[in-house]
């Protein structure tokens, strides 16, 4: 498989303008490849460097050391800056601060309009994108009359109207209620499965990582774990050490194991967990 994004020994330092010797390293010497078409979740608590990493993936931040390649293009090249941003879309935490127009369809049209596309093509893309996130019937609404989850879906539609290869979502659910959170996760999953868009989801909600192809755990600017969700969540001690909460099912199986019940810990969903516990009880 080929990689859509490649990070080569990337570091990012925030420097203080007044005191140059005091610099804060958010990401240090990190190498990572994101496979085309994959669904990757990056986990980490606040200040682990995951947001800085996200902003480097589409060239919004340029690494202070190392290189980021998007589809083979270095994000540091000025001439291709727009092209990189088109290839790698980015959705942020607060939906209110991403919407530009007071009419939904005009907001979704903002990206394609910036690319200078033909009005007919823009109209086609806007309708398609709104349908893809299930917000087509709201195309003439005003964003401030919509719920947080709906606004965030509009923001996602605004990104996919640019036809990106990859979508980075930087804690898109942090400001939403559980219902809105489920809406976003479902939408993103659907885009990944049906449209083949590569997804990088950055979050601190572990449940959102359950269906990912790959989970990366970050702490203090470095990757401390990288694997499938089941591999990662087995390691309950490590996750707790870096300040993350494991899913409740994993926590339960972990606690049962600790107390002498040899149930397998490599399952995640509630149904699977119930099944393995039932199996264990039957065997006994």
């Amino acid at each position: 498989m080929d990689n859509i994004i490649e990070l080569k020994n990337v570091s990012y330092e925030y420097s203080n303008a007044d005191e140059e010797d005091i610099a804060y390293t958010a990401v240090s010497n990190l190498s990572l490849n994101i496979e085309r078409g994959s669904f990757t979740v990056i986990l980490g608590h606040n200040g682990s460097g995951k947001s800085t990493l996200a902003k480097m993936l589409n060239g919004l931040y340029k690494p202070t050391k190392g290189d980021v390649l998007v589809d083979g293009i270095n994000t540091k090249t000025e001439e291709t800056e727009i092209e990189v941003k088109r290839k790698v879309g980015m959705v942020f935490q607060n939906p209110d601060n991403q919407l530009i127009s007071s009419i939904v369809e005009e907001d979704v049209a903002f990206g394609p309009e910036n690319l200078g596309l033909d009005p007919k093509e823009i109209r086609k893309r806007v309708d398609e994108s709104l349908k893809a996130v299930g917000m087509y019937e709201f195309k003439n609404s005003t964003p401030h009359h919509l719920s947080g989850g709906q606004k965030q879906r509009i923001a996602i539609a605004g990104m996919i109207a640019l036809r990106p290869d990859c979508l980075i979502l930087d804690e898109p659910t942090a400001m939403l209620d559980p219902k809105g959170r489920a809406e976003i996760v479902d939408t993103v999953m659907k885009l990944n499965k049906e449209k083949g868009i590569t997804v990088v989801l950055i979050t601190h909600y572990m449940e959102e990582a359950e269906n990912a192809d790959r989970v990366i755990v970050m702490n203090d600017g470095v990757i401390i774990a990288d694997g499938t969700p089941k591999e990662i969540f087995k390691n309950v001690e490590m996750l707790k050490d870096v300040g993350l909460d494991v899913p409740q099912t994993t926590e339960l199986l972990y606690a049962l194991n600790k107390n002498g019940m040899a149930v397998p810990t490599n399952v995640l969903s509630v149904e699977e967990t119930a099944q393995v516990i039932a199996n264990y009880l039957e065997e006994k």
């Binding site: 919004l60 910036n114 200078g116």
Partner: peptide, 18 residues
């Protein structure tokens, strides 16, 4: 930042849907 991510470059070569 969000506008920059949506390929905004100050309106150069911008078209309108409507």
């Amino acid at each position: 930042e969000a506008m920059e991510c949506r390929c905004y470059n100050g309106g150069e070569g911008k078209t309108r849907m409507k």
